[in-house]
Design a protein around this nucleic acid. Structure first.
Lengths: 349, 349
DNA sequence: CTGAAAGCGCTTACAG
DNA sequence: CTGAAAGCGCTTACAG
């Protein structure tokens, strides 16, 4: 005996209405030429019975599961909620479900996560690749979201331009010496952001980059960044390459008695959940995740409808760059002329 | 013509090996009695061909999709990454995939999200309900994660006990007046946490509760909490009911020139991503999400294997309470005797 | 406009 | 130990 669902199926609707299964199917999907009157009757009856089409039956027949995979380097990344929400929303609107998979660990774990998704029969997937990983092939269409400098990419925020926005903003405020703070020297996203900042510098401005990952290799996790010292050295702006680092910088400076933005400015990237909530609220750069997700999902949907089921295709025709938007909040302000001459202990408890 | 997958299926393996489909199926699943030798040959050949079983075929036949749904009140909630990661991990280990659904909005949106998941044919789902919502029925087994005071719950952290841990900790540090800070007066989780804090107070200690949602109804979003004023009034400990509010409190106090933990202590809940990273790092209470997820998923898996496909069951036999663990970090410290007498402007810029 | 039939890939009782 | 057969629920070309 094959196990059966308790709910009604096409066959039950058909017999109870005295029509064929094919007609019910056609009426419900609106595809076949069925008289309006019969369509009406069938739809009504189906609704009455609480008919829910079987995805399994449909999938087996059509070769499509109606599910998209979402592969992330690490779900714990604080950007994840925004991504997941945007992808889920876009996928939902396009009639897809979203299966998540964490590729925590190394590139091998990523390959495994992708395989798991393929085994579950996803029609395609959105991959946010691990640093320095290149997705070359999977057994289904793949859309990659990374950064425009990554080859084989499908869509992404223009992180470089986002960096320029930050630099221009800081320049307008009169800042001359900027400390860029990143936490992953191998991340192409962070490198693009840093490159953009440097590219946006006006003559006379200088930037130096502090990589936390390097620092922590020696100093241990959560070691102090020594930012008060940097402020004393004359840095007046701290441009973190992510809001988490910005938060880290902001609180370290505050704790050292340096006022933000009166003495120094702090900026971040991504407009994460806490950015508008902390005091002072964080100036940051936001990516339009809904647009990025929309583009990725519709590129995927197009490819799926054109390709044969389970054919591996990298959705990569033309890389779409989505501009990032500067959000000016309270953590950045005009450079205070005196700040440059901060002495030891002056603003430090 | 029905569309077919490009990959090999059981039939192709069978014919190319000169055996029956049933035997291949049995060999691969290890169920039927097939000679070891033949099993070996079949497995080898399947691997060679890169055989991937069709979930659709299997699902149609067995009535099980091998997929679990995860319904959240709002994916943007910063707790989401931890939940998703834990559920994905537990589900993966139990052989399930995880489909996400956001029930952003009201109770109706939640019902819709649940329906979407049912339509996709999930075998069961984990629901983290909206505040004041009670899941009474869905067309599949449901495990609810909320708080022990919610009826019909399956498993949850013991938020009340977590609150007690905080109170005991603050009592040990010598704090007498505690300001509890919550942002959702209707959340049973937050109410349980607050109740636990009150219950853990020693004689002579007092607590008052500040509900931000109430405050913001008048003052607008992101309005100042007036915590410096509270410190001047004699509150020496600020116990937020979530790490996001703790962060908000911490930075507002820091900005006002009040040193944490020298002048006042700040504590949170949940040990979110930024808690160990900010300065001072946040004292908080952590729930064992891996255990909670493990219990929810295995309860679900048990129910699924016992119930008929798509039968609606609330997995609720005995509510399991998982203890929360206090993480003491730098944001809490001994009460400074002088602090109680803080005057206007004394520690305030 | 409507229906009979084939078949997607799998698993499971059952017969040999 | 191995295989023939039925059937899960659906969609789609085709015949009427």
């Amino acid at each position: 005996m094959a196990s059966s669902r308790p709910g009604p199926n096409l066959s039950r609707i058909a017999t109870s209405l005295g029509v064929s299964i094919a007609t019910v199917s056609n009426a419900l999907s609106g595809k076949g030429r069925v008289s309006d009157q019969l369509v009406e009757r069938i739809r009504e009856h189906a609704a009455e019975l609480g008919y829910v089409p079987s995805q399994a039956g449909r999938a087996l027949r059509t070769g499509r599961s109606g599910v998209l995979g979402l592969v992330l380097p690490d779900i714990a990344n604080p950007l994840f909620p925004k991504i997941a929400q945007a992808i889920e929303f876009a996928a939902s609107a396009a009639g897809y479900g979203v299966l998540i998979a964490d590729s925590r660990g190394d590139a091998a774990a990523q390959a495994e996560a992708i395989n798991r998704l393929v085994e579950r029969g996803v029609d395609g997937m959105v991959v946010i690749p691990r640093r320095a990983t290149r997705i070359t092939f999977a057994a289904c269409p793949v859309a990659v979201i990374d950064t425009p400098s990554t080859p084989g990419n499908t869509v992404s925020a223009d992180h470089w331009q986002g960096g320029r926005e930050i630099a221009l903003h800081l320049a307008d405020l009169g800042h001359q010496r900027i400390l860029i703070i990143g936490n992953n020297q191998e991340s192409s996203v962070q490198n693009d952001r840093a490159g953009g900042i440097r590219a946006g510098l006006r003559p006379g401005m200088q930037a130096e980059t502090l990589w936390i990952d390097k620092l922590e290799r020696d100093g241990g996790n959560g070691c102090p960044l020594g930012l008060a010292e940097r402020a004393r050295q004359g840095f007046t702006a701290f441009a973190a390459l992510s809001d988490l680092q910005a938060l880290r910088a902001l609180t370290e400076l505050q704790q050292a008695g340096i006022n933000v933005p009166a003495h120094v400015s702090v900026t971040g990237f991504d407009d994460l959940i806490w950015s508008p909530v902390v005091t002072p609220s964080l100036t940051t750069v936001r990516m339009d995740m809904d647009r990025i997700a929309g583009i990725a999902v519709s590129a995927l949907a197009d490819t799926i409808s054109k390709s044969r089921a389970r054919e591996g295709v990298l959705v990569t025709a033309e890389i779409e760059r989505v501009a990032m938007q500067l959000i000016v909040r309270q953590s950045s302000g005009p450079r205070e002329p005196g700040t440059k001459n901060l002495r030891d202990g002056e603003h430090v408890r």
